[in-house]
């Protein structure tokens, strides 16, 4: 089973196996559809994995905005008693369009595509992609190759990790005492 946060709503981690499977599925979709960007995000706005023609910083911004949009639209659905939560959203533009669709309860896909792709093709192939992603996400958070959360914990607990983090933050942010 996938590890969950204390509120029980959101997976805490993605194993190497899961990440590799997700990346491969996104790459295949990107190649087949000739879309601009295909990205798996979580509901808090984090870009989990992506394939496409945007740098990482812009992917982070796109993911954050899409999460806000997705959450706001879900609230609108709630207000008008729409049970689907408007799980699928389509924003049509002249040069580029965006299709957003849910994957399990806590993830969603963001697909940006231009004139090289058609909405019909994107929609059909997205359904297949969603199935692949569901399978990968339901694999579980602990790494089958032997890298469970304990390895990350071991890194975090090292005193030199905390000291190195503090030192980097000092150099980036500066340091002064509290009141």
């Amino acid at each position: 089973m996938t590890e969950l946060l204390p509120d029980g709503t959101k997976p805490i981690s993605l194993s190497r196996e899961q990440f590799s499977a997700i990346e491969q599925s996104l790459k295949n979709f990107y190649r087949k559809t000739k879309c601009g960007v295909v990205m798996l995000s979580d509901e808090s706005g984090l870009a989990v994995a992506q394939s496409g023609r945007l740098d990482a910083a812009k992917m982070a911004l796109l993911s954050t905005l899409a999460a806000g949009n997705y959450a706001a639209t879900a609230q609108m659905a709630n207000l008008v008693s729409e049970a689907t939560g408007f799980d699928k959203q389509y924003h049509e533009g002249r040069e580029n369009s965006i299709y957003i669709t849910g994957v399990l309860q806590t993830f969603f896909l963001v697909i940006v595509f231009g004139k090289e792709s058609t909405f019909a093709m994107i929609r059909v192939l997205a359904e297949k992609l969603i199935e692949e992603l569901r399978t990968a996400l339901e694999l579980g958070g602990a790494d089958a190759s032997g890298t469970p959360a304990s390895e990350i914990r071991m890194h975090l607990e090292q005193q030199d990790f905390q000291e190195e983090l503090s030192s980097r933050l000092d150099s980036i942010l500066g340091s002064k005492g509290n009141v």
Binding site: K10, I12, S13, L14, R16, F19, E23, D42, A149, I152
Partner: peptide, 8 residues
């Protein structure tokens, strides 16, 4: 919080 072991 989200941990991606694939990317560490």
């Amino acid at each position: 919080m989200f941990i991606n072991y694939g990317l560490n």
